[in-house]
Nucleic acid binder design. Structure first.
Lengths: 169, 169
DNA sequence: ATAGATGCAAATATTTTGCCGCCAG
DNA sequence: CTGGCGGCAAAATATTTGCATCTAT
């Protein structure tokens, strides 16, 4: 399976700018009248402290390391809740590592994800040009924009030479 | 299933600016030494003439209407080939209609997809700000960008009043 | 006490693979 | 002719659901 070998190369996938504010998610859940169960506390603790983008199984494994009394389905349900409450964002990271989704706590400012197609490192980027562009869209298309997702792929400084040597099939 | 009812609301999902150049995909396949099988001709014909973004099953059904001697797996394989050859782009459209992927023939210029979260209509948008932003990223992060995907969600003129009345759960 | 949450098993949804026979070049 | 390609069945991957039970409030 091609994607398996590809996935293995992407062991790093670091998140450079984590917008961590410990306890924020838990506080939001509480103040919005959701039950603070043991499982939910575990999940939001994992997400609040994550230094990189996690998929469902990674969240599940980390939570289980803290307390094994949690089920993968509960992770799916809680992540879905947080997503619907607008507290976390869902990413695909250009399907670099497969078709699963990745999650990150909602940053104070919307940002762009930039992935190296070879080493898999994911960097975040903010730009006033991005904000301007969204305003331009709102005006020209007469819409109210509430969300956006931008994922950029390319080759980082250290991978560029290798990418030139062995271009993608 | 919540997403089922949501999906049904998105019957339109029109593509406003289709970058159609009939025969282009077939010509590219041929000139790059790929076999022009009956099935591949069907698939690229469907994609070349599509006025909206299609998922695998939609491509499959349309191709089958032209000639039923085609298998869904072949559609997966051919779409994957076209993707790897850089002839088509893959989209998620913010998972508005589920977790499948959508495809469009590679446009001459990279563009942004803007979806109405209520009616599901997808519009395309080009912006020099977008190109500038990518150049900015290349400079500041010292990368060579080879691809990007931007998907924006919000409410269009006609859906905005309704969205205010019944905000998302 | 009870509405809302979890666990478990099973179902769905989407995509990929192995293998063999077939056909485009 | 023959190596790339397609069909088929089955596997793999990713996510959701029904229902009984439990628990945070």
């Amino acid at each position: 399976m091609e994607s398996a070998s590809v996935a293995n190369r992407f062991s790093s996938g670091e998140r450079i700018n984590a917008g961590a504010r410990p306890g924020r998610l838990e506080a939001e859940l509480g103040s919005r009248g959701r039950r603070l169960t043991r499982q939910r506390r575990l999940i939001v603790r994992v997400m609040d402290t994550a230094q990189r983008h996690l998929d469902i199984d990674e969240i599940y494994e980390r939570a289980r390391k803290l307390d094994h009394r949690i089920h993968r389905v509960t992770v799916y349900r809680t992540v879905d809740l947080l997503k619907r409450m607008g507290l976390i964002d869902e990413l695909d990271l250009l399907h670099l590592r497969g078709d699963r989704h990745y999650y990150e706590t909602h940053a104070p400012r919307e940002h762009i994800h930039i992935a190296c197609l070879r080493c898999g490192k994911v960097r975040e980027f903010e730009s006033t040009l991005y904000d301007e562009m969204k305003r331009q869209i709102e005006q020209q298309l007469d819409m109210k924009i509430t969300m956006s997702r931008t994922e950029v792929g390319g080759y980082c400084r250290s991978c560029l030479p290798a990418a030139k040597r062995a271009p993608a099939s």
